[in-house]
Structure formats: C-alpha cells, structure tokens
Computed example of a mutant assay.
Amino acid sequence: MIVRIAALLLAFLLASETAYAQARPAGPASATVRIQQLQVAFIGSGAVGGGTLRYRNRNYDITVGGLGIGGIGASTLSATGSVYGLTDVEDFAGAYVQVREGWAIGAQGRGTLWLRNAKGVVMRLATRRRGLQLSLGADGVLIGFKR
C-alpha cells in the first residue's frame, strides 16, 4: 500500500513539473488577482471561494470553484499573484487547469498555484494557508465574474 501511494505521489510530481514548465509565461504581467478559498481534500479535492481581478486600473469581483485529485486535509487559502496573456477581460472567465503544491499546519502554510485556460491566460499565485493540509495534485477550476 505504501509503495502504491509513493508511486502515485511520484506520478503527480512528474506531471506537475511538466505542467509547470508549460505554464510559465513569457513577458510582463497584464493583471493581478487575489483569491480566497476553502479547500478540502481526501484523495479527491474541492474548493470554493472568490476574489478580485485588477485589470487596466479596474477591479472585477470573481467567483472561484474547483474539483480535483491529490492531497489530504482542509485549509483556507489566500492567494495573490500575476496574470499573464490577458488582452480582453472576458478571456479571464472560464475553465482553468490548476497545478498545486503546498502545505498547512495551523496558522503556518505556503504553496504555489499555476493556472491556465484555453485562451492562453496564465496565473501564477503565491498562497498562504491555514488549517491542516498537504496538497499536491491537479484540479479543474471554474472562474466567473460576480454579477
């Protein structure tokens, strides 16, 4: 059983490194984003939350939700970072693939998220976590604008 778990974690790590290499943006950031989420994981994972996109000196309220695989535990997450490849604000909303790694023990926790959508928009987010969670995996994330 331990060997299977180790092999699964190794597969996720290798997949994550490939995704990180593909997601790294070239060029300057076109926007910034802040996200707050509640994440829960036990092999499968789920997250729900919201935040703010700052694009061309204007703020847009966003919703964020996702389902995925990998990790164990629960935490709240605050993420901030840069958005690349955004030329029209409407291209920001939609489905993203997210690669994540991070940890949380009590009030201490850190991690990194890389998200990419089909329109070429890429986000690199630094995270702070609170709770008890080990996170390594991939998710499908749906981002929308609050109306």
Rank of each mutant, 00 (worst) to 15 (best):
L86G: 07
V83Q: 10
T112I: 15
A126S: 14
T76E: 01
A74H: 07
A19W: 07
T18L: 14
A31G: 13
G73P: 01
A107G: 06
R100Y: 12
Q39T: 02
L38P: 04
A47M: 14
V97Q: 04
L132S: 01
I72Y: 03
A21V: 08
V83E: 12
Q98L: 09
A23W: 11
M123L: 15
T87I: 07
Q36N: 10
S45W: 03
E17M: 13
R128D: 06
Q39I: 00
A95T: 05
V64F: 10
R100K: 06
L115V: 03
I43Q: 06
R116Y: 08
D91C: 08
R129E: 00
T87Q: 07
A79L: 02
Q108E: 06
L77I: 03
A31H: 11
G120Q: 11
L125F: 11
R116Q: 13
A26I: 13
D61Y: 09
V122A: 10
G71F: 04
E101K: 02
I72F: 07
R34M: 14
V64A: 09
S135H: 08
I35D: 00
N117F: 15
Y55T: 07
Q39R: 08
T87H: 10
G49N: 09
G137F: 04
T87K: 07
G68T: 07
D88F: 04
G137R: 03
N59Q: 12
V40S: 14
Q39N: 10
R100F: 13
Y96T: 00
R110Y: 04
K119T: 14
A29R: 08
Y84G: 03
G65V: 06
T112H: 11
L67M: 10
Y96R: 02
R24Q: 15
F92K: 13
R58A: 07
D91A: 14
L113Y: 12
P28S: 10
R34C: 10
W103P: 02
T32E: 15
T80L: 12
A41F: 07
A19I: 10
I62P: 11
